[in-house]
Design a protein around this nucleic acid. Structure first.
Lengths: 144, 144
DNA sequence: CACTAATAGTTGCAGTTGCAACTAAATCAA
DNA sequence: TTGATTTAGTTGCAACTGCAACTATTAGTG
């Protein structure tokens, strides 16, 4: 008894499948050569952009659970890519920044990651603009 | 030392964040009321559409690892939503189908899930077509 | 000041996932 | 037929994640 529903044309499924595949493609770029996972990548990307940053700010920027961020930061500190920076006024919060090793690694990863994105955008060609516009629209709808 | 990289405008990140949020919104629809997770949802959606189906076909349709599908099917059988169907010519493969209970539950879930999708598409308004077109394009690029 | 509530971050625990190794069955080659 | 290869599905294991509970610190109230 077939019901009228086609998962293959279902928007949330298609979007999720697409994002998973893209993330998988991208993460293979930094996983193999640098031994980090997607959460670590997002943490160092945030630190590279923001400079000295609290864990809370990383949580907000990456939309990732604070326990996940906590563990990623711990791992990155263990790798020597990240260090705690001086205590802030608020004794509860901790600030972090990239070490020089972390900056160096980020400098190595960035071109690879950018090349990946460029490749996708290039394949989209003239439709790239429409794609970004669509995503902006969806963000407004979903992050209500 | 700030580097020139903005995660917030990075295509794979934005797409992934969007898809996660959408999936989370959707899954709250069936998780609470029906006690299933996203993998189970995809399995029953595939079975509802395809009828009698092998595990392998579900793997292909959902793009999910075979071990994950194996466990989801086991769980669904335990819930009485899915049953094994008669042996096929190939003794390695196993075919499954929805039970009448499974069909009934699917009939209850479908309107909720469709309503969610409709809500998103409605919010997109006239841009809905462009959105679907963009996703099709990205699929061609990513699933090379 | 004392007491309560809120916030930042960590950790134990349980659930989920992917990988690799495994079993069972089919296919292929000689 | 026999033996090697491939395919379908299952399971043990290790890694990752989210939740809830916890500590520590700050903010708010009287």
């Amino acid at each position: 008894m077939k019901q009228q529903f086609d998962l293959q044309n279902f928007l949330p499924f298609r979007l999720n499948r697409l994002a998973s595949e893209m993330s998988a493609g991208l993460s293979s770029v930094y996983r193999e050569k640098f031994g980090i996972e997607i959460t670590e990548w997002r943490v160092i990307a945030t630190l590279a952009h923001e400079g000295e940053t609290t864990a809370q700010a990383i949580v907000a920027s990456t939309r990732t659970h604070k326990s996940t961020i906590s563990r990623a930061v711990t791992k990155l500190i263990g790798m020597g890519w990240v260090e705690r920076s001086g205590p802030s006024q608020d004794g509860r919060e901790k600030s972090f920044k990239l070490t020089s090793l972390g900056s160096q690694r980020m400098g190595e990863i960035l071109p690879l990651v950018r090349a990946y994105e460029r490749e996708v955008l290039k394949a989209l060609g003239a439709d790239g603009d429409g794609c970004l516009k669509t995503i902006s629209l969806l963000e407004k709808v979903i992050f209500k």
